[in-house]
Design a protein around this nucleic acid. Structure first.
Lengths: 391, 391
DNA sequence: CGTCTTAGTTCACGACCTGGAAGAAGGGGG
DNA sequence: CCCCCTTCTTCCAGGTCGTGAACTAAGACG
């Protein structure tokens, strides 16, 4: 049971946070609109906004005609108040991007990595951090934080288990912290992509959603009540390893009949191969070829894939009753662009009527490069939560 | 995005709530222990507790020797400060129970119903309410609230869809409110049983858990971050209709391969019949007989059932990463009493290593009569949330 | 009986929001 | 140019709240 006292100071911080979050998330707003939305008194809004402007977090941004009197002055979070950096750690590449608070990319640094050892990754993330700071001309002190996305289980800023990288118990955040004064946050890659979609992509406005990612494998990010749900120990969302065909195909996780073994590109191509299809070397090219073919066994394999994916979606619909499911990942997008309507209809065959009627199934809007963007929101989340207080 | 101002009054209510909740949930505590747990100052604790005692919500309950100085005075929520009533609406019976705040049953009223029309249910719940109030000798004004559990989807105190009762869009709470001044809360039966287990049974202490119920069918209650998770529109937790065998057995919901069709007593007995077993009329007796038989095909059917159930549990483990799964429902308890260890082991075959290692799988402790108890906690939840403010 | 230790209480203080009133700012219309 | 209207801003009295420090309470021990 989470019990937390409230002090008279928390009140002000909380109200600053309410105002700042409203301004950030609900676009430029006037003070007058803020009093309505937050139900704070006009006096308090004026007071708090003045403080935020004095500190530079918020700035006035033009005005808009009012209902016949003095025009309303619009307020926005000053995009250049501080900057944030997001990093994506992949198997073959480290990408680091620097954003202003409006999440415009100001600089980018990619670095290929041969063997993703923790040490090498730390080195390249820190190098990338220096590079983007230097090339954007931003003062290091103006960088609010560094968010790092890693594909693996992340608990308390430490990478606990990352199979694709072969990592186990790597205290990534503290390793990075030794090389920089900028606050470091580490989180799971799928969650970060989900976060990007929730804030800036197809998830906008939803509070209970699932971002389902299908690439070579399959994973998801769960969003419950407006914030990411991580379960008891940060590993919630392993949607790809849900048993969907009892005693079915062997999955690379060792179990039988996982969804991933049927809808992940690797599994799909393997099924195609077993059905007599020929598969080119490059996984992505092979997948595109499969989707474009209108001959057997390709058509059956694709149709089956949609069916399995639909069952996987239906399981989400029934179990977590989301208002939206956002399909992404490179294979997911390829499938979705062509078969979204079929997929929606198929979900209806497996899901319960009521929750099915309440869910909308849409595609990711940000492409697959949004991971660093999502990671960069981590420091922004902190800023908004703390009402604009900087370190 | 949920944004809410904080006023100086919210602060006190919130702190009262923190203190009251601690006292209620963490047993008798001294003021001194409260200062530690809540991180409020000793002055504030003293002040707030004095207020709560003056209002009668809290009372002193003996003292305990301190570490060498003045003894600590223990505090508890006064069990007889107010009373709460819980009602369980079943297909064939309405049960109403009155509890004190320590959740001791003070009176009970059962009433068989022939056809569960909303009108008849309302009538019997209200009759039961009068009966338990009269037979316990409690003043009606001392009854904090009435919680009603219905098996079906409940949104905003209205029953939206209850297939077993044949109800659709029944505004149960407002119908009941016409017959009593006592505040009425309505919620889903599985969630209420889950709530009872979380507070007083096998779920104590867990914040992320699933209470999985297997009877004739199968359902669950999800608990995320210490409170019940209902999804976007209150129908989360439909675990029984998760596809587990793609293109498998027909389920009564219409879909193919639902978990319920394999592990619900109805589905299990049907599978037994198809395998050549003979099944007596009464479902429960038949199920017990099946479990007790050590001949084929009974043993295979039971072993398979454990396997399917394990896959269903594994899907929960992977997707929501709970710290605990509590198995209940009459069929679930029968299975669990005999095969819990096998079940645990089987879950390991389907689940990912890490989340599997973090979950404990246990049996419900309260039996199947705890639904009314769970429903009765609804007004208590409100009392604790509001810091002991009564209507 | 005095002293030590821990538990709980009292009180002045500063931080905070609110409502109301008065006024300044910024535009439009006559 | 003046008046009107709406949007802020400023100010103040009124009230609530948690806090730290000083203080009181209550038992143990010698």
């Amino acid at each position: 049971m989470e019990v937390r006292r409230t002090t008279v100071r928390d009140m002000r911080r909380s109200n600053r946070s309410v105002i700042l979050t409203s301004i950030y998330r609900e676009g430029p707003l006037s003070r007058q609109e803020l009093t309505v939305r937050t139900s704070l008194s006009a006096a308090s809004v004026s007071n708090l906004v003045a403080e935020l402007i004095a500190e530079g977090v918020v700035e006035e941004a033009g005005s808009v005609e009012s209902e016949g009197g003095r025009p309303r002055v619009l307020l926005r979070v000053a995009p250049t108040f501080r900057y944030v950096v997001g990093a994506e750690v992949g198997e073959t590449r480290v990408r680091v991007e620097l954003f202003d608070l409006a999440m415009n990319v100001l600089a980018r640094a990619d670095h290929p990595i041969s063997s993703p050892t923790p040490e090498e990754v730390v080195k390249h993330v820190l190098e990338g951090l220096s590079t983007v700071i230097a090339s954007s001309g931003v003062q290091p002190s103006q960088v609010l934080g560094l968010g790092v996305a890693v594909s693996g289980v992340v608990e308390d800023n430490a990478v606990v288990d990352a199979q694709t990288l072969g990592w186990d118990a790597v205290p990534l955040a503290s390793m990075l912290a030794e090389g920089t004064d900028i606050p470091v946050h580490v989180d799971n890659g799928a969650n970060m992509l989900g976060q990007a979609e929730m804030w800036f992509g197809a998830g906008r406005g939803a509070t209970d959603a699932v971002v389902a990612l299908v690439g070579s494998g399959a994973g998801s990010a769960l969003v419950a009540g407006g914030s990411s749900y991580r379960g008891a120990r940060s590993s919630a969302g392993e949607w790809g390893h849900m048993t969907i065909v009892y005693d079915g195909r062997q999955c690379r996780c060792g179990a039988l009949g996982c969804l991933e073994a049927y809808v992940g590109a690797e599994g799909v191509l393997d099924r195609y191969r077993l059905a007599g299809g020929t598969v080119v070397k490059d996984e992505e090219a092979a997948f595109v070829e499969l989707l474009e073919s209108d001959e057997e066994p390709a058509t059956t394999v694709v149709a089956d894939t949609i069916g399995y994916l639909a069952a996987g979606f239906a399981n989400l619909v029934n179990l977590v009753n989301p208002e939206r499911i956002v399909l992404g990942g490179w294979a997911g997008l390829l499938l979705g662009e062509k078969y979204l309507d079929t997929l929606r209809a198929e979900v209806g065959k497996h899901a319960l009527r009521r929750p099915y009627a309440q869910v909308s199934i849409v595609l990711c809007e940000l492409g697959r490069d949004a991971v660093a963007l999502g990671a960069a929101t981590l420091p922004v989340v902190r800023l908004l939560r703390d009402g604009g207080a900087v370190r």
